[in-house]
């Protein structure tokens, strides 16, 4: 570790998290602390388990061992109602948006407000229009189907859906994947604005180094199922760790050996 982590009670605390799929040990004892109100970016190569880590915290995948605490409550041992209450405070932006095809944009954004906050349909629609405005979309977009939107607009709608219920924790899975650099920067800017405005704690996973430095206060590098480096985002390109250096500079030669089929 290049810098000592901040002290205090973490908002998210992961200890010894392990998950295997068959013989492949994807997570091999992850330890990670995310302090309240900060943004943590997890970087790492394809298939190193970044998405699995987030899905374990969200409860979409059952880990084999370890603990996941939110505000000091271990989600893996707590009762269902406590677990659900803790997870209802999490907003998630999926890599491809994961907007519901069968609903309009407005219904997508209002969905969480109705399901999580038990808001009435009309009030939820009004709030959805407000949130669409916050991500730079006109209220008229709310009447469209997700399939009628461009990739960048779909990402904005997905972001609006994630922040609509004012979650105290936000996860972002590859927020700039598939977007051109300008749209990527726009989405990153929106993410930073939203996280600051809500005072949320954020965890993002990405391959995009520019995005990592824009979004993150701190960065953690996941390699071979473990966090091998963690430090301030400003030190990412100057980590003095050979694995991190190779990854962040995109060098072919180095300790990370790509598995290529010939």
């Amino acid at each position: 570790m290049s810098a000592s982590p901040p002290t205090g009670l973490p908002k998210i605390r992961v200890r010894g998290l392990r998950k295997a799929f068959g013989a492949k040990q994807v997570l091999d004892g992850i330890d990670l602390d995310v302090m309240p109100g900060t943004s943590m970016v997890v970087i790492g190569g394809s298939g190193t388990g970044k998405s699995v880590l987030i899905k374990c915290i969200l409860g979409l995948i059952e880990p084999d061992a370890g603990s996941i605490e939110i505000d000091g409550v271990d989600l893996l041992t707590a009762g269902r109602s406590i677990r659900n209450a803790a997870r209802s405070e999490i907003g998630m932006l999926f890599q491809n948006g994961a907007l519901f095809d069968s609903l309009t944009v407005r219904q997508n954004v209002a969905f969480g407000l109705i399901a999580r906050r038990h808001m009435g349909g009309r009030l939820a629609s009004q709030r959805a229009d407000e949130v669409l405005g916050q991500v730079g979309l006109a209220a008229s977009v709310g009447d469209l189907a997700p399939s009628e939107l461009s990739g960048g607009m779909q990402k904005r709608v997905a972001l609006a859906r994630a922040i609509a219920a004012n979650p105290s924790i936000m996860f972002f899975d590859e927020p700039t994947t598939g977007l051109d650099p300008i749209m990527g920067a726009v989405i990153d800017g929106l993410i930073v604005d939203c996280v600051r405005r809500l005072g949320s704690t954020a965890v993002a996973i990405t391959h995009d180094m520019a995005s990592a430095r824009r979004i993150g206060d701190r960065v953690a590098m996941l390699h071979r199922g473990r966090i091998i480096w963690e430090g301030p985002a400003a030190e990412l390109l100057d980590s003095h760790d050979p694995v991190v250096d190779q990854f962040t500079h995109g060098r072919r030669e180095g300790p990370i050996q790509m598995e290529l089929r010939r």
């Binding site: 659900n84 998630m92 999926f94 491809n96 994961a98 907007l99 519901f100």
Partner: peptide, 17 residues
């Protein structure tokens, strides 16, 4: 199946549904 492979089913879970 399409909802599953495009993470829409996971998205439902994250929205308390």
């Amino acid at each position: 199946g399409t909802m599953r492979v495009t993470d829409q089913i996971d998205a439902l879970t994250t929205l308390n549904t």
